[in-house]
Write a protein that binds this DNA or RNA. Structure first.
Lengths: 225, 225
DNA sequence: CGTAAGCTTGAAGTAGTTCAAGGCTTGTGG
DNA sequence: CCACAAGCCTTGAACTACTTCAAGCTTACG
């Protein structure tokens, strides 16, 4: 098992503010875990006793609505921390996390890191900053959800995935989501999501191959209605 | 001007974690401000150089969508802090704040409080906790917006206002919002908001008097579709 | 007491949902 | 390696929710 001190992922998240000694202590207690595609990492309502740090792979954070449909709240990739909120409050988690492909993660027990959170202001400040950023993103999502059309939201999520997570060698989006996942991100019925994607396909804005999606005309997506 | 040390509002927000000395210093630098109904406290994109602490009155935090419509993100009342996010990150604010009725606020310059944020872990932790709570609320709102009908969302915002901000002596909601504000919270056209409220009125779930709203049958709201 | 701002209603149009059926992939066991 | 089943993906058609424009009404306020 590699050490936290030398883990590249550290550069991407709040752990970078820990001192060398703090990191070594954390490193000694962490557990590396592998989650297979589709695996539920944790579920809404569970008590988390630590945070997960994503080393590779992608997962979705979802919340169940009263109508029985899941809503995707956020996608998390390399460097992201799962369970930040539960670390700070004493509450159970309000989201579920599901692996979208095979993932490598490090689990750091709460007990190890709480002490640093209370004593290292730089670290606390850094967690605070990522939280503030999350909050800003969340405001943005809320407005998008409330005011934009399904078509527009779909265009934006495709661009978001393209820009943030990139494409594979053939030019297809490297994150492969089911139509149901897309529907759940955009907040619509699966059929609606499919219809929008079909329309994009007909207009030569995207091309598909099974579930995979390639963006052919990025510019058209950008100026969508 | 009264002192922060003896301000009751302090009990409701993160300032409670400041030591007596810290509070006295903050107190010496704060400015009391009065904002009249409808007054814009700050606007999206402004650089805030401090936080506002609400002593009385209510304000809405809104974000402008690309379609030109405002979306209400949050209502803030006594004890709430405005500009928390801008305190932590060095960024401009992403929301606008508008007074919904006459408000009393204290303005604390950033310079005064940043030092405490860096040196008093208890205070930082407390800000972190309220931020985590905001984030949870925000997730909840996102799911509601994405998955629930306008009617349902309207019912919930009425109950929310009733439960959190109470009623006046006649039983009317003590926060008075325009139909446009309701539309902007629920994320719909003003006419839709009006129609839903009219429907509630016809079904004797609410009664109205001008803009004011009284909830007659709380139970019907609760079991809405 | 007049006028502007906000509330209400109607009617027509559009976007999104739902149910139902059929077609493709992918993976599995014979 | 093929066949078949399960799980996606796709499409159609009817329905419902929401929007938009347009007009009339009520209330608050100078």
């Amino acid at each position: 098992m590699s050490k936290c001190e030398s883990c590249i992922v550290r550069e991407f998240n709040a752990l970078k503010s820990l001192t060398r000694e703090e990191l070594m202590r954390v490193s000694a207690c962490k557990t590396a875990k592998i989650f297979r595609k589709g695996h539920v990492i944790f579920e809404e309502g569970e008590t988390l006793n630590g945070v997960y740090c994503v080393k590779s792979g992608v997962c979705k954070l979802t919340k169940m609505s009263e109508n029985g449909k899941d809503q995707v709240v956020k996608l998390v990739v390399k460097g992201g921390l799962l369970g930040k909120r539960s670390l700070v409050t004493e509450q159970k988690t309000n989201l579920s996390a599901v692996a979208l492909n095979d993932m490598e993660m490090c689990f750091v027990p709460k007990s190890e890191i709480m002490d640093d959170l209370n004593k290292n202001p730089k670290f606390t400040m850094d967690v605070l900053k990522t939280m503030a950023e999350d909050l800003k993103d969340s405001d943005e999502s809320l407005v998008n959800m409330a005011q934009k059309s399904v078509k527009r939201r779909m265009a934006e999520i495709l661009m978001y995935i393209h820009d943030n997570f990139g494409t594979d060698d053939d030019g297809y989006l490297s994150i492969v989501l089911s139509r149901e996942d897309y529907a759940s991100i955009v907040g619509t019925a699966t059929e609606s999501a499919i219809r929008i994607l079909s329309q994009f396909k007909k207009e030569d804005i995207i091309s598909t191959s099974g579930k995979r999606i390639k963006i052919e005309d990025y510019h058209s997506l950008k100026w969508m209605e």
